[in-house]
Design a protein around this nucleic acid. Sequence first.
DNA 1: CTGCCGAAGTGTTACGTATAACGTCGAGGT
DNA 2: ACCTCGACGTTATACGTAACACTTCGGCAG
Lengths: 344, 344
Amino acid sequence: MTSAQQPVPARPTSRDVARAAGVSQATVSLVLGGKWPGRVSEVTAQRVRETAAELGYRPNLAARSLRLGRTRTALLVVPALTNEFFARVYAGAAALAAEHDFGVVLYPSPDGTGPARDPFASARAALDGVIASSMAADALDALHGADLPLVMLDSDPSGTGPAAHVNLDIADGMRQVTDHLLGLGHRRFLHLASAVDTWTFAVRAEALHEALGAAGDATVRTVRAPLDVGAGREAAEQALAVAGERPTAIVCDDDILAAGACKAARRLGLRVPDELSVTGFDDLALATALEPELTTVRLPAEQVGERGMEALLAVLDGRPAEQGGLPVQLVVRGSTAPPPAARA
Amino acid sequence: MTSAQQPVPARPTSRDVARAAGVSQATVSLVLGGKWPGRVSEVTAQRVRETAAELGYRPNLAARSLRLGRTRTALLVVPALTNEFFARVYAGAAALAAEHDFGVVLYPSPDGTGPARDPFASARAALDGVIASSMAADALDALHGADLPLVMLDSDPSGTGPAAHVNLDIADGMRQVTDHLLGLGHRRFLHLASAVDTWTFAVRAEALHEALGAAGDATVRTVRAPLDVGAGREAAEQALAVAGERPTAIVCDDDILAAGACKAARRLGLRVPDELSVTGFDDLALATALEPELTTVRLPAEQVGERGMEALLAVLDGRPAEQGGLPVQLVVRGSTAPPPAARA
DNA sequence: CTGCCGAAGTGTTACGTATAACGTCGAGGT
DNA sequence: ACCTCGACGTTATACGTAACACTTCGGCAG
């Protein structure tokens, strides 16, 4: 006694469509594939398309991937999606990917903590390429030896490994911040830097020192902290508590650290911006949630993702990837003002 | 002139492993599949495993999916990853998924704007199931008719469509907030509510009114705003500017709106918490970045994701999904205090 | 000695798709 | 009348895997 008719309407295949339309499976593939124009007469093609729509046909992507050896899926490696910047990078990458019928999966260590897992064991789809932020360095080791097309975001462009680089003009942003503060009259600076040691932060430090050096009479101290409000506050509080001449401006590597700096100031009874100027970097939503709103550098995060995906698609097509850094822009808000001395 | 040997070392298949180990492909599959214990002698199994490791064999997931008809991939539908809450939900879901060798892809409209795309056209992998936040209602329409196992997050549990619900005990959280404020002596309230109209927000309103009703002499006004700092500030500012008795406490549906409320207070020259108490909901990083820090309700976002994935895995296994709401907890910080009258 | 059984593998097949290679058929050139 | 050729399709095949059905073989009860 075998089961008669299967009662569950299984997902229709291209062969089902073919049968219903009275053509061969190959013709269905030809029509719906969209390439090979002219291989099938328009009247037949129309019939096939209608039948496919009627049956609700959806190509089986596993079968397609198996046949083609490509998956139209990219892996995006970022340290943590809870950092708004990277959430926006993902959004940009995913949006452009969708336009090209591509998918984006994330490296599955989205909390940034925990041991680096094998990205391929967990990335369910086989991958056509990888887009990776330099801030996810540990994950990159795991990627080593996979010889997939690799696009690096915000990393040292002199590295020759990656097929392409997408960089922000971080140095210019830091110059704009510094010039803004110098223009207001500041001369004693505190650099609240990220404890993470990647290119994107090294460039900040370098540009800051260079711009201050040009001013001649400016001084700067540096303290480092993990990218988190509490840690930033602590570091800033300690640095501000030391004896001697207090800095009049804190330049932060990141809006999150800047939020910490603002809290430190408040705890020490220093008013921002009257007694202490604070600048951020990134222009996250946080920057306008604080009071006063942060003077910061706006980074086009979504564009970073888009350009990264664009570069990857180009590489996969054998086209050259567009080079060149993305421009950033200083946004002056309420957290910066002339130093007390200049106001007196 | 045909090409002699392929110079590119193609990715080894299970058949390559079989050849190298001197067994059949079927045996390799048997050994590496891990099921069917005892079908292959331990000595042979060992040899196969070693050979696979040597060659760096990785199963082709497309082929496996094609064969099995399952993909071990779930779709997570959330309104926007830039909302830290959902980024954390994703983190929780992805972490648990990884433990079970599952993958999570995101509905590709991560900015929350734009027209709802077809989730299946863009989700590259075929899907085994869907986990969806009630806040992504538009996307759910697109999911209709896919008859995949569906787990709903934070949605009306009386809905019978989904295979399982994972809910936070939102009502309890709102009760805790209200009782806290009533206990401090507040009687005139403003409810800064989300403009989004989903279960999770309806419950907040209901619980608030119920708890206030129990107090007898309390009054509340409601204003609604989109989930964004600027919109929250504007709505709060307008509501506070009206003539008559000013509310002494603003209860917000969300930390983001609470940040807006704090900004509105500052603009109007009202000190928080001395002249106006403000409460949030979610306990995002933002809550401790603000000054004063927000009194808010801590939601176990990661757990929501975990439980959602857990429920989906259960459903896929034919096991019953664990029911029951996740507990939430009031976190009292600096943004609440007794009202001015009680202090005088 | 025969028949049966379990252990340990192997041969084979199907999953659904894309495309290379192969018909077929009528029009048009010589 | 014969060949060619383009237009329109079809047949056949391979991608890599999992698992069903089968073989082989030594052991052992009847």
